[in-house]
Design a protein around this nucleic acid. Structure first.
Length: 224
DNA sequence: GCGACAG
DNA sequence: ATCTTGTCGC
């Protein structure tokens, strides 16, 4: 699918921060999306091994999560891991995989933060601008913000607040299992983001599309 | 200066 | 993220 070239990836950490501050103004968090009306959902993830980053984008058809397309791309890892600048580590290889996409997903679920980021532009939000499609950040641990305890039952969620601003939801997708940190990326509301993730994770902690991308990118089971 | 810190 | 076996609990 068509990808937008918003800036160069070959930048210094300082320039990366400047780019994030400039792009944050373009994020639209007003898209109400009904989980029941989704048709195609993509899972996005990147694995790193021996200096090589491998991106996987898996497109699923609802409501059965059948895989309709898988795109993989590999490149030398271009940037070190710096909290807050994950996009500059995974962006280049992900762009390559996105460009090869034949389907146009209704929403992209990304392994990482959305606007629940120090500058409100986590990898899911940044990718949303590049794709100009709805994206949702699904992080396994907290990057920023605070929250009250989350009830133990599946479906329970509490607001994630950073510097006085609600940036997402700490959501329990499985009873008595560590919650996920959900935040909108682009073109999606905080409420829709949580509802969609819950609907996409009927059995396991992580949403099905992300689990598929996880293994495809090279995890414990499958993947080459 | 000190503590925090997605993947 | 990645390095790694067995083990406790639903």
């Amino acid at each position: 699918m068509d990808i937008r070239h918003l800036h160069d990836w070959n930048v210094t950490p300082r320039e990366a921060v400047a780019i994030q501050k400039r792009l944050r103004a373009d994020i639209r968090a007003d898209g109400v999306i009904d989980p029941d009306r989704l048709s195609l959902v993509a899972g996005v993830d990147v694995s790193v091994k021996n200096g090589v980053s491998r991106a996987a984008v898996v497109v699923c058809r609802l409501p059965d999560f059948s895989v309709v397309e898988t795109q993989i791309a590999s490149r030398p890892t271009p940037f070190p891991y710096v909290p807050g600048l994950l996009t500059f580590r995974e962006g280049p290889v992900l762009e390559e995989a996105f460009r090869a996409l034949r389907h146009e997903p209704d929403v992209f679920l990304v392994d990482g933060a959305g606007i629940a980021h120090p500058r409100r532009l986590g990898v899911a939000a940044h990718l949303g601008l590049i794709l100009d499609r709805p994206t949702i950040g699904c992080a396994k641990t907290r990057l920023c913000g605070d929250h009250d305890p989350v009830p133990e039952e599946r479906g329970a969620g509490v607001p994630l607040v950073d510097r006085g601003e609600v940036v997402g939801t700490v959501l329990r997708t499985r009873t008595r299992v560590a919650p996920l940190f959900i935040s909108p990326g682009h073109r999606c509301t905080i409420e829709s983001a949580a509802a969609i993730v819950l609907a996409m994770a009927p059995r396991y902690r992580l949403p099905e599309p992300i689990r598929l991308a996880h293994t495809t990118a090279g995890r414990d089971p499958g993947g080459q």
